[in-house]
C-alpha cells in the first residue's frame, strides 16, 4: 500500500510540475471559453429569445449550460493528460527502474489510474468553484447545498468514467507520438461529442445519435440538469410544456433517442455500465500485454 501511495504521489508531482502539460490539458476548455465569450453565448441567447420573452434568468440559464459542458470536458482532458506520465515512463524506460523494486506491473499501472482520477478530481473541483464564481458574478444564483452535493457527486462519477475511458485508450497507445495524436483527436472531438460547441438539436440526426451513444456526453447531460433546473423553470414560467420540452431536446438537457425520451437514471446506468465494461476490458488488455 505504501508503495502504491508513494508512486501516486510521485506521478502527481511529475504531472503538476510540468506547467506546459497542465496548460495543454486545459487547452480545449480554454478554447470553449473563448468561443463562448466571443459569440456562442450571444447567438444562443438570440435563438432562445425568438421563442420566449427575455428575462434576467435567461443569461444565467445559458451560462449554466456552458458551465456544465466545460466541467464534463475538463474531467476528460485532465485525466487523459495525466496518463501522459504512463506513456512517457514506458517509452523512456523509466518504468524499468520501478520494476527493479519489489512492486508489480499491475501496482504501477494502478498508480497511474489512481493519479489520473485524483488529478481529474482536483481540476474539476477547482473548475467548479471557478464556475460558481462566474455564475454568481454574472447575476445568477449559487447552487443550493443539495444541488452542490449532487454536482460534486456527478463530477466524481464523470472523473471516474473519464479515468477508465482514457485508460482504455492509453493502453492502445504505445508511444508518445501516438499518445499526442490521441490527445489532439480527443481534445478536438470532445467539444462536439458532448454537444458543447454546437447544441445537439442543431446537428443532423446521425450526428445526434453518435452523441447520445457517446457515454461521456451523458455526464454533460446530468450536469446540465443539476445546474439548470431552477433557471429553466424561471425562464419558461408560464410557457407551454411542449416548448420547454423542445428547448431541452435541442440543447441536450434530455436525449430523445429513436423517439424515446431517456430518463436521467438511464444516463446513470449508461455511465456505470460503461465504467464497469471498460475497466474489465482494460484489465484484459493489460494482462495480454504483460503476459
Amino acid at each position: 500500500m505504501e508503495a502504491l501511495f508513494s508512486l501516486v504521489k510521485r506521478n502527481n508531482k511529475v504531472f503538476r510540475r510540468n506547467k506546459t502539460q497542465v496548460f495543454y490539458s486545459l487547452l480545449s476548455v480554454i478554447i470553449v471559453i473563448v468561443l463562448y465569450a466571443v459569440f456562442l453565448q450571444k447567438s444562443q441567447i438570440n435563438a432562445i429569445e425568438e421563442m420566449i420573452k427575455t428575462t434576467p434568468e435567461l443569461v444565467t440559464m445559458v451560462n449554466e449550460w456552458i458551465v456544465a459542458g466545460l466541467l464534463s470536458m475538463i474531467a476528460v482532458t485532465t485525466t487523459l493528460a495525466a496518463y501522459g506520465i504512463a506513456v512517457r515512463d514506458l517509452e523512456s524506460k523509466a518504468q524499468a527502474d520501478f520494476l527493479t523494486a519489489p512492486i508489480s506491473r499491475a501496482t504501477i499501472q494502478f498508480s497511474y489510474v489512481l493519479n489520473s482520477f485524483i488529478i481529474g478530481c482536483i481540476f474539476s473541483f477547482i473548475a467548479l468553484i471557478g464556475c460558481e464564481i462566474f455564475i454568481a458574478s454574472t447575476g445568477g444564483q449559487l447552487l443550493s447545498f443539495g444541488d452542490f452535493l449532487k454536482v460534486v457527486g456527478i463530477l466524481v462519477l464523470s472523473v471516474l468514467l473519464a479515468s477508465v475511458f482514457n485508460l482504455f485508450l492509453v493502453l492502445l497507445a504505445n508511444s508518445e507520438h501516438s499518445f499526442s495524436t490521441l490527445s489532439t483527436i480527443i481534445g478536438t472531438a470532445l467539444g462536439f461529442l458532448c454537444g458543447v460547441y454546437v447544441p445537439v438539436g442543431a446537428l443532423p440526426s446521425f450526428a445526434q445519435n453518435i452523441i447520445m451513444y457517446f457515454p461521456i456526453s451523458h455526464t454533460t447531460l446530468l450536469l446540465r440538469n443539476a445546474f439548470m433546473e431552477s433557471s429553466i423553470s424561471k425562464v419558461f414560467e408560464g410557457a407551454p410544456a411542449s416548448q420547454v420540452e423542445e428547448y431541452k431536446k435541442v440543447y441536450g438537457i434530455v436525449y430523445d433517442l429513436h423517439g424515446n425520451i431517456l430518463s436521467t437514471s438511464t444516463s446513470m446506468i449508461i455511465i456505470v455500465v460503461t465504467i464497469i465494461v471498460l475497466a474489465i476490458v482494460s484489465i484484459i488488455i493489460f494482462k495480454k500485454k504483460n503476459k
Partner: peptide
C-alpha cells in the same frame, strides 16, 4: 531514469518507499 522535475531527495525517497 529519475524524474527531471523532482529534486534528488524526492526522487530517492519516493522510490525508496517502494521497498
Amino acid at each position: 531514469l529519475l524524474d527531471a522535475r523532482l529534486t534528488v531527495q524526492e526522487n530517492i525517497l519516493h522510490r525508496g518507499k517502494t521497498y
